[in-house]
Design a protein around this nucleic acid. Structure first.
Lengths: 313, 313
DNA sequence: GTGAAAGCGCTAACAT
DNA sequence: ATGTTAGCGCTTTCAC
């Protein structure tokens, strides 16, 4: 392994000069820069990221915390985040928590121990301590597709839940539905509860009230597409027909939602944009310049397919 | 941040002694161990992973390289790998390559720069240079769900492609199919080409030959479930019926395959086991003890659902 | 059994 | 503009 010292000797300069060249510092003459660059090329020198991290107190690594990576929405978000991070020279540590409190706590411990510069939270349990733990260690945090954080220090990028649910309820009401329910698999999931809240608000505005469970509902709104698709499977196994007996609405618009066999009515949410922006925001926070808006709400749109229909007469 | 020195001072011992206690070295008296442990608990001391990595030349980090994290099979494998790695104190760096040569090269560069101890390869382009690049830097490599590596130094864990394809072809032949085709989205994907090879072999054994493309085939075998499911969508959009006009077979048995609306005939492959074992194997390699078999082939089984049927008379 | 000392490879004051 | 120096926090001989 070639080090700064090797390059320095080869180029006949000091290590700091080489370091300056490597880091693109301005205070190096054109002549020496050339010399050093030649030596670097000759050795194929690559700075040791570990040594640099120890000294500079920045690992150029980010974390991403997810409840379920097997959900294509989260996977797509992660892929986009990884791509953007990599483009900017950052590595991405992905941690799957299953929304389990203990695993979230452990995730925080690992992220702190590994000294990541920032963390994108793509999902967590309601009232999770994870963000606070990170913030307390000076680690930047951004919520992605997770709704509004209560704390000012946390950044966010999300689809507009409120107007999305407004559109969903409006659509269902037009189809004659009055008995609607919101379902989420894991009770007390942060994003789910926020969406449930928005859903209830939209109902109440119309003088309606949500059913406590899918039982007896003519329309079921699921926390996300995966759960909506699972719900179709469950209901159909019970002999119900979608949408004749029950209408189903998802959230995310994962690629599968538009599959001919699925045709899920859902809210379009752009995982790629959210993942990319989340990384951009967290890096802005890392660099201490929150000039641009630190919270960003993307417009939501309802995509109507075949999983919703008129309520039976 | 509390350091070794803080703990040492508090316990009235030297840093090396604290280090010995932390690393569980035997050569510490019971009495001092107790003292040190108390001081550690008092401070809530956590060793600095970065400093340790610099000195010990081991980052306790692994990499996982994937072609497409949005494929639930790969996602599940990654989740399992991450879980196992985390259990053993290792972090996991996930890199999505889209099977793109340039990205694979860049992935190798990053993994080398970050000095990961080992890498699980869950997918790559045929003849990719990635494994060689890593091996040359002394980084352990294990193929997961990728077939047999040519190089002895590379570990592997995979489902038995050969017997799987044998079962598929046998099943289809019984249904009267003779015009079959294997399709894979990305030409020249390592795993896909291995499966294609196994498929062709099984055909030839019966005196049959594969069709060059899905066109005109009565049965189509896809590289994996996601592609099979996409194929159903495509064919049905063209007005064909599955399985009446065309039978479809996948590979992986992702959860979606058994959805009531999908019912995909496929090969069962356990992503969780593969992910977990891949990490175990790569760590055995890291620790230099390849006592246990370094290559592991899991039994394959055909799951027959509703996407395959008798060929039209 | 315990401690002193020498770095791992790099960065960032501070000199020059 | 370039070099010198002093560590970052840890591990690991090597003495005692």
């Amino acid at each position: 392994m070639t080090t700064l010292l090797d390059v320095a000797r080869r180029a006949g300069v000091s290590r700091s000069t080489v370091s300056n060249v490597v880091r693109g510092s301005e205070l190096v003459s054109e002549a020496t820069r050339k010399k050093v660059e030649r030596a670097i090329a000759e050795f194929g020198y690559q700075p040791n990221v570990i040594a640099r991290a120890l000294r500079a107190r920045s690992t150029t690594a980010l974390g991403i915390v997810l409840p379920d990576l097997t959900n294509p929405f989260h996977a797509e978000m992660t892929v986009a985040a990884e791509k953007e991070a990599s483009r900017l020279g950052f590595a991405l540590l992905a941690i799957n928590t299953e929304c389990d409190r203990a695993i979230e706590q452990e995730a925080a411990r690992v992220l702190i121990a590994r000294q990541v510069d920032g963390v994108v939270v793509g999902g967590m349990s309601l009232g999770s301590k994870l963000p606070r733990l990170l913030l307390d260690r000076g680690i930047a945090v951004v919520f992605a597709s997770l709704g509004d954080p209560e704390e000012r220090e946390i950044g966010m990028v999300d689809t507009d839940d409120a107007s999305a649910m407004e559109a969903v309820v409006s659509h269902l009401c037009e189809l004659g539905h009055r008995d609607m329910a919101f379902v989420s698999q894991r009770l007390r999931e942060h994003a789910g509860e926020r969406r449930r809240h928005a859903f209830v608000k939209a109902l109440v505005r119309r003088g309606l009230r949500p059913l406590p469970s899918a039982h007896g509902a003519t329309a079921v709104i699921a926390h996300n597409d995966m759960q909506a698709i699972a719900m179709i499977d469950r209901l159909e196994s019970q002999g119900l027909r979608i949408p004749d007996d029950v209408s189903i609405v998802g959230f995310d618009d994962i690629p599968l939602a538009r599959h001919s066999r699925i045709g899920l009515t859902t809210i379009r949410s752009d995982a790629t944009v959210i993942g990319r922006r989340a990384v951009e925001l967290v890096l802005e926070a890392v660099r201490g310049k929150r000039l641009k808006p630190f919270r960003e709400i993307l417009p939501a749109s309802l995509v109507i397919r075949s999983s919703t229909g008129k309520v039976k007469a």
